[in-house]
Nucleic acid binder design. Structure first.
Lengths: 155, 155
DNA sequence: GAAGATTGAACGATCAATCTTG
DNA sequence: CAAGATTGATCGTTCAATCTTC
């Protein structure tokens, strides 16, 4: 979910004395930062007709360089299979991917990038990279180190 | 959206030479950290029968200490009004809030915490605070300062 | 007409249940 | 029965269109 960016307005048992240090809980700072970045990614991708989710699937297929089964896509996206079913439905409706059957195992269905899908992915990757660079430039490498430590402690 | 936690497997133009420093783009580190925290919040709230969104609304009502109009809830939640309409539908169906009409202006509808809503909010706030404390304890105050700077630069 | 709320459609996500194939 | 994919339900979110009331 898109957690509200504003923390509790008047935290119940707010410990006074930290007046100047803006005691907004870490949790909110973190989520606010992440949502800001996500919003930028969404805006950049929207300009080329993609969502983050769609770009994610196209990226996986482009990286693989060959069609992937829907289960593989689900696993690599860390989501459930039914999610991919629907995402691929929409991508297919837009003509960006195509379902292809496996002739050996008829349970298996792969998603294949179409010509349009390859093009769209290229545009998406460009937009995505631009945001990434923009964000990276706002952050010093020492800040980055802190963030990495944070991630590893939280993960 | 719940952005995939894993960055690009083999970034296109990956600049070699930073081998040891795990060159996963900042963007991914940040979102991964945020999603980890969000997942913990979700799990903690689920245990008391709440989602992050529902807890958010209950929190606003509890903070206000009085019924709020649906528009006020939407504004303070940074979401569109229709979102609140449906959220309040579900909260009302669960008996946690109640819609109350305004007798002066018949367009206005307020959400009021029920007794059960007050109790549920208390449980949610406790669960929420526990996660907050847990996260805070994993982070030094100097790291916190970095994160705050990050937020302000990104916002 | 503008404001407050609702409804309907769509997207992205999850879960449970089902269908088909192995 | 397992595995792969789909369907249907629900949640949270947005947007566009509508209804009622000011």
């Amino acid at each position: 979910m898109k957690y509200s960016t504003r923390g509790p307005r008047a935290p119940a048992g707010e410990p006074l004395g930290e007046a100047g240090s803006a005691a907004k809980p870490l949790v909110f700072s973190l989520m606010h930062a992440a949502h800001t970045v996500e919003a930028r990614l969404e805006a950049a991708l929207e300009a080329v007709g993609l969502s983050i989710a769609k770009h994610g699937v196209l990226q996986l297929l482009a990286d693989a360089g060959e069609p992937l089964t829907l289960s593989e896509l689900a696993e690599q996206s860390s989501c459930v299979r039914s999610n991919i079913t629907q995402l691929v439905d929409r991508l297919e409706a837009e003509g960006l991917v195509q379902r292809v059957d496996d002739h050996d195992d008829r349970r298996i269905i792969r998603a294949r990038l179409t010509r349009a899908g390859v093009d769209r992915h290229a545009a998406g990757a460009k937009a995505f990279a631009a945001v990434q660079a923009e964000v990276a430039s706002a952050i010093s490498s020492s800040d980055r180190a802190v963030l990495d430590r944070l991630v590893s402690r939280l993960g």
